[in-house]
Nucleic acid binder design. Structure first.
Lengths: 323, 323
DNA sequence: GGCGCTTACGAAAACGTTTACGCTAATCAT
DNA sequence: ATGATTAGCGTAAACGTTTTCGTAAGCGCC
């Protein structure tokens, strides 16, 4: 393994002492704009990554606490990917992310330098509590007046639905996740907007509750179809639910995409089947979260950013059969 | 936060130098049995936990690599619990566990001081490869000639089945996980043994493939029942599959446990419904894994340990209705 | 021109552990 | 008895960072 470049090396290259380098890199006062720029440039050039162990030893508890909202299913492929990306992105900043045990309201039971909030709820008590404590934090989701980053879920829901509309479908059902979760609600909003834009009415009976679970999606799709609900296209607000829905359609004897088109959401890797879906740029979400957390720790004013999503047409969506 | 006790403090209490303490604690040569015992006693008494950051800084990459078998679903509640317990248990030993990226055969793409193998396969190439490299590792599962720790799955399958037999059931179906995974196969073996012991024949058609997934279990149960398969009791080899099976039975209009008894496996916490199941002692599995890994790193001869399981009778199993 | 004040920076201590090296005393072979 | 070996232990350097303290230079001000 190659030896990583150290702060000392940077000091040598920039003709300053290690103390100055440390100050410059951490945005601390006591270094002139000129030297600071020079140091940052050198660090950038050699691809410096601070040694987390040394940092921690020196007393900078380099752990940011990961706070899951209560009631959210953590053990999903999506969260696993997000976590992986977050770990990677924060590592680049010399920070480690670790899940923190919480009380029933989701408030942290252990101290951390900063926090990362996952699974944004509606009236999230975690936000006010942390704000009152003055702890820096970033929310994965949206909320006014705090640092937040979120995938552009309204746009994603819109893109998926418009794709189906453009293929000639007019009866489009949606399998949603929990509507008290932002992701679930926002994707539904996008769906509604696309319908509205196309001059089609929103029909509540075409909204099926899939609870973000494959099994729940399966049951909802199968039951409603057998009760006589009909549509030529289905938008599932997560790939897991799409898989459940797909299985249900198969068990109902329906061909995908000939009889029913299907669009998922997330674009999970390693899916064995070719699913038309909305791609989420998870690494970018993670990187933005890391960047924002640094801003938050530096005491900057809050800001939020939306990360773009895009549609990936694959095998499960087709032009509506002439009917 | 209270200051953790250091190696220096222990040195003071035991009247030796820090170097000697370090050697004693790490099982390295160069310290007499007497002093070693004294040091260990002091360390035990004050509840010493080595500082991971300092260790890493001093060059002892304190990370043990977590290696998942290819093809195994990592994002399950069971693995999440196991991982949590492993993190905790290894932390006590001054070790951090981190997942390591693998190639398609499951071999590690990054170096680590030692490895932990999860999701034991049958002819696992990881085992021979690591053994050839002389890397210390512990397998969660069983394999002759290496360090391993595993829940007593054959016994668990036996206990679940015998419970149903004792309730008067004679037609007992089983929903299994993948049979090329040890856990899946061993639980099936226990089921067979209980049947055999009771003088009942093993009927292959009563074995349903649930792939350790709720949805797959649901489909298998529902489809086979509709095809005419009948039984008065069902043993699902994981709680997730039990939930899927339960949903299927409900959708078939069958009452649990009046018409069909159901037993799960794992005893996951936070299940909202009261499921009879086999309890797994995950914290103990983790602690044993940590203990064994230390033995392995010390170069001791390999050994394996089975962690006991036990049945937890709850609401989904009942005496067979008079038929 | 002396005084105080600020700013930019270097020197060095500190964090907790591992480990190379050196020393002492005991053991051993001759 | 003497020199060589060895077991047992202490000393100190090293790991990469943060941070306290000291200091020199620059500034305005009377």
């Amino acid at each position: 393994m190659k030896r990583a470049t150290t702060i000392r090396e940077i000091a040598r290259l920039a003709n300053v002492s290690v103390g100055t380098v440390s100050r410059a890199l951490n945005g601390r006062p006591g270094v002139s704009p000129g030297t600071r720029a020079r140091i940052l440039e050198v660090a950038q050039a050699v691809g410096f990554v601070p040694n987390a162990a040394a940092r921690e030893l020196a007393g900078m508890s380099s752990a940011v606490g990961l706070l899951f909202a209560p009631g959210v299913r953590r053990y999903t492929p999506y969260f696993a990917l997000l976590l992986e990306a977050l770990t990677e992105a924060f590592w680049q900043e010399g920070l480690k992310v670790a899940e923190v045990p919480t009380d029933p309201r989701g408030l942290p039971l252990a101290e951390a330098r900063a926090y990362l909030l996952l699974g944004a709820h509606d009236h999230d008590p975690r936000i006010e509590s942390l704000r009152a404590q003055g702890k820096p934090f970033v929310l994965i989701g949206t909320y006014p007046g705090v640092f937040w980053v979120a995938p552009d879920d309204p746009e994603g829901g819109y893109l998926a639905t418009r794709h189906l509309l453009e293929l000639g479908h007019t009866e489009i059902a949606i399998v949603t996740g929990h509507l008290h979760h932002q992701a679930g609600r926002e994707r539904l909003e996008g769906y509604k907007r696309a319908l509205h834009e196309a001059g089609l009415p929103f029909r509540p009976e075409l909204v099926l509750d899939g609870r973000f679970e494959a099994l729940a999606a399966y049951r909802a799709v199968r039951r409603t179809w057998q009760e006589g609900l009909r549509y030529s296209a289905l938008f599932a607000a997560s790939d897991e639910m799409a898989l459940g829905a797909w299985a249900a359609l198969e068990d109902l004897g329906l061909r995908v995409p000939e009889e029913v088109s299907l669009v998922g959401y997330d674009d999970l890797p390693d899916l064995e089947r070719s699913l038309t879906t909305v791609h989420q740029d998870i690494p970018t979400v993670a990187k933005e979260a890391a960047r924002l957390l640094k801003e938050a720790m530096a005491g900057r004013p809050p800001m939020g950013v939306r990360v773009p999503v895009y549609l990936v047409p694959r095998g499960t969506s087709a032009r509506r059969g002439v009917g």
